[in-house]
Design a protein around this nucleic acid. Structure first.
Lengths: 227, 227
DNA sequence: CGAATATAATAGTAAAACTATTAATGTGGC
DNA sequence: GCCACATTAATAGTTTTACTATTATATTCG
């Protein structure tokens, strides 16, 4: 995927920020250093004050870009989902075999991001780590219904729809394509997380992308055949 | 499942509490009112101070039972997993057909708990809601490796092992039984959560236990046949 | 009944999660 | 090049959270 997106701007729902962080150098710095700091400290210990110290700005400046750290997390997750959607689209374009399309999509979803080629100011490798370990906190809140209504999760939904299309090509009769796809997406991250931290709950070992991919390919193909 | 466990004590790893909340009336009140309050406020807004006000005790008293609210959450989750394990065991005992055993286990896992029969002082209905929306926060922390080493997640692992046995009966050759079971357990909760809050990501509707059960039964049986 | 233990009542601290105010700096238009 | 305007820096302040500490008052258990 090297350099593929150099001229593409990933779109994130604007209700997630106060001022678009892509619109200034400081905004980009907030995002790029924010990723590094959340990855280093974990979301609970991450604060705007610490981020301010890291980038040499007062925390009040960061508040002019993001209402609070929760919204920053939703923003980062959305960016990741939108980026993944592009990866899936490019990986499957021009491929005609339905099965091959599924396999290519799964490969894009399961691969552990390498640090060699960065999209602009964003470290996708660390962002992926954040999404794996922190992104569920973005929707397990009491405000989810309102935030959903306000479109906070549209990037994730877009990715899901994209994958539902690929599933439906293989079996248009299948009744649970959305359930299958959402189980897949969360399942991939869960298995990677377990592989690293709770190995007794999984058969995949750390950074073993192939096993994850093979498991979920088997899952989808056999369900579409028998479901 | 009415009254089945009236004389059974659910065991939770003792490293999760400072003083066993089952050992005093106040401890039980902390747990029972804690469940209600976390359900009402969400875990982020829940504090020991608010819980203290609700039970008429100072927060310092609660700290003598639980080190912090994170450990209370791990305690509650562990109680739930241990309780679910018993449910699965009782649902499958004396059943000889391997397939029937799986179906009974899935039924126990998927059913939405009713409030009619309470285990002792614990409101399982609300506890289940908490586990669905909050329990992932119990392990998505920076301390997971140490906490895992300290045995915080043994109840969950026990439940997984129990289900792995049932899967292995059906196909002893299957290489991904742990991955299958952990995908199942999280998947059930995820689908219930989506059914309630993000319906466009799922084909199950709110409290539609049968669809969830059927989906995962199809998933397991078809994977064991084709994997 | 007395000693240990649990709980209540109260106070206090450091940090988190903001909000507000003013000063300095930069930038775009004329 | 300078003025207007917007952005950022510097600083301070508030409320709440997540604890810790101290002492007084009940309880209970040997």
């Amino acid at each position: 995927m090297r350099g593929l997106f150099n001229n593409l701007q990933i779109k994130v729902p604007p209700q997630l920020y106060i001022k678009d962080p892509e619109s200034s150098a400081l905004g980009k710095k907030i995002v790029s250093e924010g990723i590094l700091l959340i990855d280093a400290l974990g979301f609970e210990s991450f604060t705007f004050k610490k981020l301010g110290q890291k980038i040499g700005s007062p925390e009040s400046t960061i508040y002019r870009y993001f209402e609070n750290k929760h919204k920053l997390l939703v923003y980062l997750s959305s960016w990741y989902w939108a980026w993944l959607e592009y990866k899936v689209v490019f990986a499957t374009v021009n491929i005609t075999s339905h099965k091959k399309r599924l396999q290519k999509a799964l490969e894009a979803l399961c691969e552990t991001v390498q640090q060699d080629q960065k999209y602009d100011h964003i470290n996708e490798e660390k962002l992926q780590k954040i999404v794996i370990s922190e992104s569920s906190k973005a929707f397990y809140t009491k405000e989810i219904d309102q935030e959903n209504k306000d479109g906070y999760f549209s990037s994730y939904k877009n990715l899901c729809e994209r994958l539902v299309e690929i599933v439906k090509e293989l079996n248009p009769e299948f009744k649970y394509s959305h359930t299958l796809v959402s189980t897949l997406l969360e399942g991939i991250h869960l298995q990677k997380f377990y592989g690293e931290h709770l190995p007794s709950l999984t058969n995949v070992s750390h950074k073993d992308d192939r096993t994850v991919q093979h498991f979920f390919e088997t899952m989808i193909l056999s369900m579409l055949k028998n479901g």
